[in-house]
C-alpha cells in the first residue's frame, strides 16, 4: 500500500467522536427511509445518539457528533447545501442550544426523556423560524405547526425512552483504536 503523505494524528477522543457520529449517520439514513405522511415530520432517530453522547461525554462531544452527522448525512442523502440541509442545521443548532441548557438542570429530576422532548420542540422551533424567515415567508406555514408539535412530542418521548433505556445498560468497552494495529 502506498504510504500516505499526509499524517493525521488522532486522539482517542477523535475516534470516539467518529464512532458515535457514524452511528448517528446510520440512524439518520434509516430515518430518511421511513415513509411518513407529512413532509417535515421525521422520527429523528439520530437524536438518540446525541442524547447518549450528551449524557456520557458532555455537551462539547454532542455538538461535534451532531455537526458531523448533519454534514455527512447531508452528503450521503444528497441534500448538502440545499434548503433541506439548512433546515437540518437550524434544527440541530436550536436543539443543541436547548440541550446545553436543560442538561444543566438537576439530574435527579430531569433525565433523557425530558431533554429529548425539549430538544424536539427546539428542533421544530428552529426549523419553522428559518423556514418562515427564508424559505416560505408567509404565515400560512404556521398552519402546519400543530402537526409538527404533536410529532415533536411523540417522537421526543420515544427517542428519549430509547436513549434512557440504552443509558441504563452498562457501557460497552470501547473497541481498540485502529492505531494500535498499524502504528503510524
Amino acid at each position: 500500500m502506498t504510504r500516505s503523505i499526509i499524517e493525521l494524528t488522532t486522539t482517542p477522543e477523535d475516534h470516539r467522536i467518529a464512532r458515535l457520529a457514524a452511528a448517528a449517520i446510520g440512524l439518520s439514513l434509516i430515518d430518511a427511509a421511513i415513509p411518513l405522511p407529512l413532509p417535515g415530520i421525521k422520527p429523528g432517530l439520530a437524536n438518540i445518539v446525541t442524547l447518549i453522547v450528551l449524557a456520557r461525554h458532555g455537551w462539547g462531544t454532542a455538538v461535534w457528533v451532531s455537526v458531523l452527522r448533519v454534514v455527512a448525512g447531508g452528503l450521503l442523502l444528497g441534500h448538502f447545501l440545499s434548503p433541506g440541509f439548512f433546515l437540518s442545521v437550524a434544527g440541530a443548532a436550536a436543539s443543541l442550544l436547548v440541550l446545553g441548557a436543560v442538561s444543566r438542570l438537576p439530574a435527579r429530576a430531569f433525565g433523557p426523556v425530558g431533554w429529548s422532548v425539549c430538544a424536539a420542540f427546539a428542533h421544530i422551533g428552529g426549523q419553522l423560524l428559518l423556514a418562515r424567515l427564508w424559505l416560505i415567508p408567509h404565515d400560512g406555514l404556521f398552519l402546519m405547526t400543530p402537526f409538527f408539535a404533536v410529532a415533536a412530542l411523540a417522537f421526543g418521548i420515544i427517542n428519549g425512552l430509547i436513549a434512557a433505556r440504552l443509558l441504563a445498560e452498562p457501557p460497552v468497552a470501547a473497541p481498540e483504536p485502529p492505531d494500535a494495529e498499524h502504528p503510524a
Binding site: G111, P112, V113, G114, L161, A168
Partner: peptide, 8 residues
C-alpha cells in the same frame, strides 16, 4: 426511565 421533571 422517566424522572419527575420529565413528567413535568
Amino acid at each position: 426511565l422517566l424522572r419527575p421533571g420529565d413528567w413535568l
